[in-house]
């Protein structure tokens, strides 16, 4: 997740960018919730550094360009913390958005490839 500030980050934006939804009970992804007191502020913003610390997410800063990147969580020690498939928004050949969840109800063999 790319950020241009660590202040006043909206909870919905944090959820969209990291896959972890800030809730009163903690930071949640699928059926997994990690207690994270103080991460979700009363005004609906997220204390990014506190949330990242709770999830074991590294924060990398490019000071020259004023940009931060938040890495994925490490709290489980595995890439997957749940077997519920994530739902990234991808694009098709013509640039149209495509959600993986649109294929619910069908088996999906998701094959990664590249042109390089």
């Amino acid at each position: 997740m790319i950020l241009t500030t660590l202040e006043r980050v909206d909870a919905a934006a944090f959820a969209e960018g990291t896959g972890w939804e800030p809730k009163p009970e903690g930071l949640c992804r699928g059926e997994v919730c990690v207690p994270a007191p103080g991460s979700l502020r009363d005004d609906g913003t997220v204390d990014v550094e506190r949330a990242a610390e709770r999830l074991g997410m590294p924060i990398v800063h490019d000071a020259e360009h004023g940009v931060w990147a938040i890495g994925p969580g490490t709290s489980t020690g595995r890439v997957l913390s749940t077997a519920t498939a994530p739902d990234p928004e991808l694009i098709d050949r013509d640039g149209n958005p495509f959600k993986l969840s649109s294929l619910h109800g069908r088996k999906v063999l998701l094959v990664a490839w590249s042109s390089y």
Partner: peptide
Amino acid sequence: LFGFVNIPMAVWIDETGTI
């Protein structure tokens, strides 16, 4: 999100959206 570190790699997802 899925752990692809090379290509080709794949994951299987069932009808309920479960890997």
